[in-house]
């Protein structure tokens, strides 16, 4: 009796993971479904309407263009320009934005005074700064970098500020009564307490910044994926344009899912859930 019960339990236990694995696989497939659908619609339209290659090309042509660009090292060069630009901009934005966010968040009056201003800045997209930036810095990487950092840094400052301000006051009061200095409060309370918000700000900023980067590259024309697709337009290379667009989307997903999101999950697991 008890042995059969135990036996069936063991069987159930060994069966369960298999079901879970299958379910997980299905879930992954579900993510791919819309892409497959888009591809099918595209191909159907292409086949049924007989477009000239100046207007629309087949998915197969795009694939060939992709293979060509990759095998000749062109894609790597343009993509690495964009990626290193967003990486550098993110790093600089964190280095400047987090301390500024702390300084503002700790000071109640500064936070009140700056909240409206930061929202106002959020309304002026980085691209709207392009005319001024081009006049000031010319068609250079500096212009692109300034636009991307501007776009990235506002959500980082804003979320750092929010993060610091949502830390319960009792945490800091308690530590001050234990003799903590200002520096100690930053290290032991504000930094760990604000980290989940900082990461949220970084993730938002990377999303906005990536878009601003492509736009800036299209105007500045000094390399990067924006330059690639805008340059292809001049020669009517539809296949290159679409290839570039797909790579832009894919790289964003890769950066977000493989780098930014894991950091976010880590901090939320470590801090977010613990904070309650």
């Amino acid at each position: 009796m008890s042995t059969t019960a135990a036996g069936s339990m063991v069987a159930a236990a060994s069966r369960q993971p298999k079901g879970l694995v299958a379910a997980r696989r299905l879930r992954h497939l579900k993510i791919l479904l819309p892409f497959v659908a888009l591809l099918a619609v595209w191909w159907a339209i292409y086949l049924s309407l007989d477009f000239s290659p100046q207007v629309l090309v087949s998915p197969l042509a795009v694939w060939h263009a992709f293979v060509h660009l990759v095998s000749h090292g062109v894609m790597a060069e343009y993509a690495s320009t964009s990626l290193s630009m967003i990486g550098f901009a993110a790093l600089l934005s964190l280095l400047i934005g987090v301390p500024v966010g702390f300084a503002v968040g700790i000071n109640r009056y500064a936070a009140h005074a700056l909240e409206g201003f930061l929202r106002f800045l959020q309304g002026i997209s980085g691209i709207a700064w392009l005319p001024l930036a081009i006049i000031w810095f010319g068609f250079t990487h500096t212009t692109t970098l300034v636009i991307v950092i501007y776009t990235l840094i506002v959500p980082i400052i804003f979320n750092t500020m929010i993060g610091v301000r949502t830390i319960p006051e009792a945490y800091t009061l308690a530590l001050r009564s234990l003799g903590a200095s200002r520096l100690r409060l930053v290290k032991d309370v504000y930094l760990p307490g604000g980290l989940p918000s900082i990461v949220v700000g970084l993730r938002l900023g990377m999303g906005y910044g990536w878009r601003a980067l492509i736009a800036a590259e299209m105007l500045v024309r000094k390399g990067g994926l924006g330059d690639l697709i805008f340059g292809a337009r001049t020669f009517g290379q539809i296949d290159r344009i679409i290839t570039g667009m797909i790579v832009i989307g894919c790289l964003y997903v890769v950066v977000d899912r493989l780098i930014v999101q894991p950091i976010e999950n880590l901090t939320i697991q470590r801090w977010g859930v613990l904070r309650q």
Binding site: A170, L173, P192, R275
Partner: peptide
């Protein structure tokens, strides 16, 4: 001003959620 000579225990949870029990107690 606040001083470690005068310790305070608050009503609301004032221990740090990202520190273990041991590290919280040893914080002062």
């Amino acid at each position: 001003g606040p001083s470690p000579e005068r310790g305070v225990v608050f009503q609301e949870l004032a221990i740090l959620p990202w520190r273990t029990v041991r590290r919280n107690i040893g914080h002062g």
